[in-house]
């Protein structure tokens, strides 16, 4: 298959978040701001690429019946590595993402790609697939995070977006609900609908 197509399929056509509806939990929880979305996206991309790489290289050595436990073991190892590296070098992000870093283990995107793609394809294709899917995930999270951060906190990447009037304490009167739990569901719902429409138009 054309490697470029393999890379870009995760962006829209097979976007894991907006089309396949996988990995919904971290999508909703960590998209409170663009930078959190970016951080979560990169953490997942790293795990996805590394586990795809390892699994594609050892796919023939693993007996079929213990396939899934072996995959989970590989994934869990990389997740723990990400956990410790973030804790040491980017503690602020580690705190924001919290329990959702260890939960990458049970993220359907990672195990799904390992089982459906990396265990059947070459090492190179699997790495490219990992990057493509990872970037698609990151893109979706940043879009969601961007909308929620601008409307809910009045900032973008932490910089003020002066579209809201100030209240008595001098803080901007933003539409708080967007940064809270209900806002996550609402924005995600409309984004999925929009993507469906976009996809139908392209076809």
């Amino acid at each position: 298959m054309n490697q470029w197509k393999n890379f870009t399929k995760g962006f829209l056509r097979e976007n894991p978040v907006l089309v396949l509806i996988l990995g919904t939990c971290p999508t909703l929880a960590t998209s409170t701001s663009v930078s959190n979305g970016l951080g979560m996206g990169l953490a997942l991309t790293f795990v996805l690429v590394m586990s795809n790489l390892v699994i594609a290289s050892i796919k023939n050595l693993i007996p079929g019946k213990v396939r899934i436990p072996a995959f989970i073991l590989v994934i869990a190892t990389f997740v723990t590595i990400v956990d410790y590296v973030l804790k040491g070098y980017v503690p602020a992000l580690h705190k924001e993402l919290g329990v959702f870093i260890p939960l990458i283990v049970v993220n359907c995107i990672v195990l799904g790609r390992a089982e459906a793609y990396a265990s059947k394809n070459s090492v190179l294709s699997s790495i490219i697939d990992g990057f493509g899917m990872g970037f698609g995930f990151t893109l979706a999270l940043m879009t969601l995070g961007g909308i929620r951060e601008i409307l809910g906190a009045g900032t973008f990447f932490g910089m003020k977006v002066p579209i809201f009037p100030a209240d008595m304490q001098g803080n901007p009167k933003t539409i708080l609900i967007f940064i809270l739990a209900p806002g996550a569901f609402l924005v995600y719902g409309y984004l999925v609908a929009l993507t469906n429409r976009l996809k139908n138009k392209l076809n």
Binding site: N60, L61, P63, K65, V66, P69, A70, L73, V74, A76
Partner: peptide
């Protein structure tokens, strides 16, 4: 492809676990 015999399965898991 490695066969799914009991020894193979146990050995693979142990090796991966130790490496991890």
């Amino acid at each position: 492809k490695t066969e799914s015999t009991f020894t193979n399965m146990v050995a693979t898991m142990v090796i991966i676990m130790v490496l991890a």
